[in-house]
Design a binder for these strands. Structure first.
Lengths: 350, 350
DNA sequence: CAAGCTATTGCAAAGGATTGTTGCAAAGGA
DNA sequence: TCCTTTGCAACAATCCTTTGCAATAGCTTG
C-alpha cells in the first residue's frame, strides 16, 4: 500500500523546493486562489492578516515576484515614466551633455523616491517625426518627460493635446498647451550681459548655437541688454557637445579674441573651454576678458579661476517637473513654471 | 424596410472616425481577424502584401500603435534593458557622477541603435539587499547592465548564477561567474604612479575613496609602483561626488600640500578640484606638483592646464557591454573583457 | 474532374496578474 | 431560533497581443 505513493504527490513533491514561477504556483502552494495571493502580496486589507503573512512568507522563501508585465497589462498602469531627450541628427549629438545628465540624475532620484521607474529614450526627430507619439502611445509609460524642446515645439504641442501626462523641461510660450518647467532664459541672458557691462565690458560675444528655443531666448536677452547702450554683441555659434565644440570654439575665438572683452557662454562647458582658449592666448580672465557661464553645474566652482555663472535650480526644477507630472497623471492640469535665474558671482567677472 | 438601418451599423458608424484603440478595433475596421492584423503590422510574410498594406495604412491613418505591454506579455520579450547604478546610502550619493553619466549616454546610444529601450534604476543596496533580484526578476527587462560593482560583488555573483543576461561594468576576479567589462585598474594605477615617478615626484598622494573595488584596484596599483622605490604614497580618501568632495578635498589637501609633490586622482573630477585647490595655494602645476587624473572625460582636455590622465575607452566599453549582453540574451556565455588603460599626456605632468 | 498544393486567413489558446461580484460561514442581534 | 451583518475567499472576466494549428479557397497537375 505504501509502495506506490499517489501520482499527484509524487509529481508535485518530487523536489522539495519546486520553482514558483507564477502567482498560480504560489496560490496552489498556499492552498488559496490566485486572487487571494495577488491581494496578499499587494497588502490588501481584504485578506486575513494570517493568510496574508503566510503567503508573503512563502513568496519570499521561493524568491517569487509577480510578473510586472502581466500586472501592468491588467491594471493599466506601468509605474514607469518615460524621459526623452530629442537630439539633432546632423550633429551626431549624443546625450552626454552635462546639463541634461545632471537633470536626468535628479529626475531619476525623484522618480525612484516616488516608486517610479525611468525609461530613457534618445529620440532623433529628424529621423522619426513620430518620436513622441511613439513613446506616449506605446502604453509602456504612465507619463512622459521631455528634456529640452530643441526645435520640436510644434510636435510637443500636438501630442500634448491628447496626451495629458506630459511635462517638458524648457521654455513657455503664451497660450501653449503643454506644461513646461524652465528658467526665464530671456531675463537670464539680460542679467549676464548687464553684469558684463557693469564690469566695464563693451564688446561682448555670445557663444552658443541658437537653434533650440532656450538658447535663442538667452541670446535675445543679451541683445536686449546691449540694445540701448554703446556696447555691441557678437554671436559666435558653436555646438553644445564638447567634442565638437572644442576646436570650433578655438578657431572662432582666436579669430575674434582681439576684439572681445566680455563673453556670455550658453553653457558652463562652453565657458570652461573659452577659459582654456583664452589662457592659451595669454589673455587674463577677468582682467582682459570677463566670462559668464550658464547653469552653475557643479564643476563651475572648480575651474581656474572659478566661473561666474547664471544658476538654474536643477534639483528644484526636477522636483517641480515630477510634482506636475504626478498631478497630470492624477487628472489635473498643472500650470507651467518659470523659475528665476540667479547670478552666481565668482572670479571670472570683475 | 429601409426605414431603420441595422442597429449595428448605426452604432459603429455614428462617428466617421471612431477611435481605434486595440488591434481588435483595427481588425474589425479592416474586416480581418486580429491575428491577421497583428501579422500585418509586424511585416509577417504570412499575410498577403495587399492586405498588409491596407491594414498598415489604416493603422497609420488612425494613429494606432499596438499596446506594447500586451505584446511583451504574450511574446515574453520586452525589448528593454535595465541599467542599474548601485549607490551608497550613507553618502546620499546620486547618479550625477560624470563618468557614470558618460557611460550611460553611450549605452543609451548603443541600445537605441539596437532597438532596445533603456530602463534606468538607481539602487541603494544598503536599503534593499534584493535590489538586483528585484529588477532581474520583474520580467520587465530582457537583460541587465550594472554600472559599477561598488561593494556588491557578492550580490552580483549570486544573481548572475541563475540570471544569465547580466553584464557588469567593473573589475573581473579570477573565477567569477558574471560577465564584466572594465579597465585593468591595477595596471592603470601603476602607470599613473610610474609616470609621476618618471617626472621626478617622490611624495605621492592618492585621492579617492577605496570602498569600491575599481578604485581600490587603482590604489593598489599605485602602491605597487611605489613599493620598491624610495618614493612613498599617502592615501587621502575623498568622496567621488563633487558637492561632498570639494570641501573635504580642500581641507585634506591644504593639510598635506607642503609634503605632496605628485597626485594620482581617482577621477578627472577629483583632479580638477585638486588643480583648483593647488592654484589657490599658489602651487604651480606641474612645476611644484604633478597631477594625473582618471577616465579622460571630455572636460579633462579643457582644464587649465589641460589634464594628464589615464583614459578608459568609454564608448568602446559601452559597445563591448552591449555586444556581450546581446550574446547572453541569445543564450551564449560571453567572456569578460579587461581593457587596457592608456596614458594621455597633457600638461599637468612634467 | 479529383486530388494535392500553396498562399492566406481565421480561430482560439495562451501569457500572468488584477479586481468586481458572488458565495459561504461564523458572529451578532432581536 | 431566525435573520442580518461581516469577514474572507473563490470565481471568472478582463487587459491586448501573439502564434500554432486548422480551414478555406484557388490553382495546378495528372
Amino acid at each position: 500500500m505504501d509502495a506506490a505513493p499517489p501520482l499527484r504527490t509524487g509529481l508535485s513533491q518530487s523536489r522539495n523546493v519546486l520553482k514558483v514561477r507564477t502567482l498560480a504556483d504560489l496560490a496552489r502552494l498556499a492552498g488559496v486562489s490566485t486572487g487571494t495571493a495577488s491581494r496578499a502580496l499587494s497588502e490588501s486589507p481584504l485578506v486575513n492578516a494570517r493568510t496574508r503573512e503566510r503567503i508573503r512568507t512563502l513568496a519570499r522563501d521561493h524568491g517569487f515576484q509577480p510578473n510586472r508585465i502581466a500586472s501592468n497589462l491588467r491594471s493599466r498602469r506601468t509605474g514607469t515614466i518615460g524621459v526623452v531627450i530629442p537630439l539633432r541628427h546632423e550633429r551626431r549629438q549624443h546625450i552626454s551633455d552635462p546639463f541634461f545628465m545632471t537633470l536626468l540624475g535628479y529626475l531619476a532620484d525623484e522618480l525612484t523616491e516616488s516608486g517610479y521607474n525611468l525609461m530613457l529614450s534618445r529620440a532623433v526627430p529628424d529621423d522619426a517625426p513620430d518620436w513622441l507619439d511613439r513613446i506616449a502611445g506605446s502604453g509602456m509609460v504612465d507619463g512622459v518627460i521631455v528634456i529640452g524642446q530643441s526645435d520640436q515645439f510644434e510636435t510637443i504641442e500636438r501630442v500634448a493635446k491628447d496626451y495629458p501626462p506630459l511635462v517638458v523641461w524648457g521654455s513657455s510660450r503664451p497660450g501653449q498647451v503643454h506644461c513646461a518647467v524652465g528658467t526665464d532664459n530671456g531675463t537670464a541672458g539680460r542679467m549676464a550681459a548687464e553684469r558684463l557691462l557693469a564690469g566695464g565690458s563693451t564688446r561682448l560675444a555670445f557663444l552658443g548655437e541658437t537653434t533650440g528655443m532656450e538658447i535663442a531666448d538667452r541670446f535675445a536677452g543679451v541683445r536686449d541688454a546691449v540694445e540701448h547702450t554703446e556696447a555691441s554683441c557678437l554671436h559666435l555659434p558653436c555646438p553644445m557637445s564638447l567634442d565638437l565644440m572644442a576646436e570650433e570654439l578655438e578657431t572662432r575665438l582666436i579669430e575674434h579674441a582681439g576684439w572681445i572683452d566680455g563673453i556670455v557662454a550658453a553653457s558652463d562647458l562652453i565657458a570652461m573651454s573659452a577659459l582654456k582658449v583664452l589662457d592659451s592666448l595669454g589673455k587674463n580672465v577677468p582682467g582682459d576678458v570677463q566670462i559668464i557661464g550658464f547653469d552653475d553645474l557643479q564643476f563651475a566652482a572648480q575651474t581656474v579661476p572659478p566661473l561666474t555663472t547664471i544658476r538654474q535650480d536643477i534639483a528644484g526644477s526636477a522636483r517641480a517637473i515630477i510634482t506636475r507630472l504626478k498631478a497630470a497623471i492624477g487628472g489635473n492640469s498643472p500650470d507651467s513654471l518659470i523659475t528665476n535665474p540667479v547670478l552666481i558671482e565668482r572670479e571670472t567677472t570683475r
